[in-house]
Amino acid sequence: MSIEEDILIQDFIKKTLSEKEKNEVLLRLKNDKNFRDKVNFEEQLIFNLNNTDWSISKNSNHPEVKEYEKLLKSDSTNLLKGTLQAVNSEYQLKQTNKNKPWLLYTGIAVVLVLFGLKVFSPFKTLPNELYANYIDLSELPSLVNRGDSKQKTLIKAQKLFETKAYDKSLTILEKEFTTVQKNKAAVYLYTGISQMELGQFNKAEISFNTLIESKLIDSPKGIWYKALLFLKQNEPSKAKKMLLQITESSSNYKYKEASEILSKL
């Protein structure tokens, strides 16, 4: 590029050209790709290396932009956004309270009122309440195949389970747990849920882990029930981890429900 052309481009960017000169440059920009590239680059130099300006891009079809856009829309980024908002609120409140001690007491009072509302309000969304809202035993697969009358013990376990006699059902299921050959996933699920309902949380976790690690077709259900187990125990952060695994793909079992719960936690 000659110094004359450089000066012309500078004056065009600074908008100090006469109307005639400006129109000539605009015409060249339209017809001369090489000249257009020079002007674009010069603009990038000026806007990037000026302390108060900025070079704004508009090419949203750029492949890398698309890739970043996808990442920014991902569930993990949404979760980060939520955490940042929460930390920001906490930090700003701390700063305000540092300057105005009376606000600290107001803040505490507000928190206490909100806590009271959360505990006593009919609209509370405590984790164990989410558990109650989302556990749906009617959608569990059957322990036995239709017409298979040979599996009498499992039929009995299923009937006991359906009448919420979890302790009796569990006695049968725990015996079957390691030896069962057919419907393994269902046995693991019924066992885990019975243990969960009986408050045997550690055992329930082991049962669901067995299902998750079994690589059976129904093993993804283990992740969902493990998330529910943590909700029942009022352990939202552990539950979130499981729910996030589910929301990694919209084709995962209980994707919609997991997303709903995450937004409520």
């Binding site: 990038q44 130099l45 990037n48 290396l49 900025w54 070079s55 704004i56 891009s57 508009k58 090419n59 949203s60 750029h62 890398e64 932009v65 698309k66 890739e67 970043y68 856009e69 920014l72 829309k73």
Partner: peptide, 25 residues
């Protein structure tokens, strides 16, 4: 008006370009 995520994606690329330009300066 650009969608927030798209705008943020462009921000990342603009920052990368700015880093290259300032590094060379």
């Amino acid at each position: 008006l650009v969608a927030t995520e798209r705008d943020m994606a462009l921000n990342i690329m603009e920052q990368k370009r700015w880093e290259l330009f300032t590094e060379k300066l």
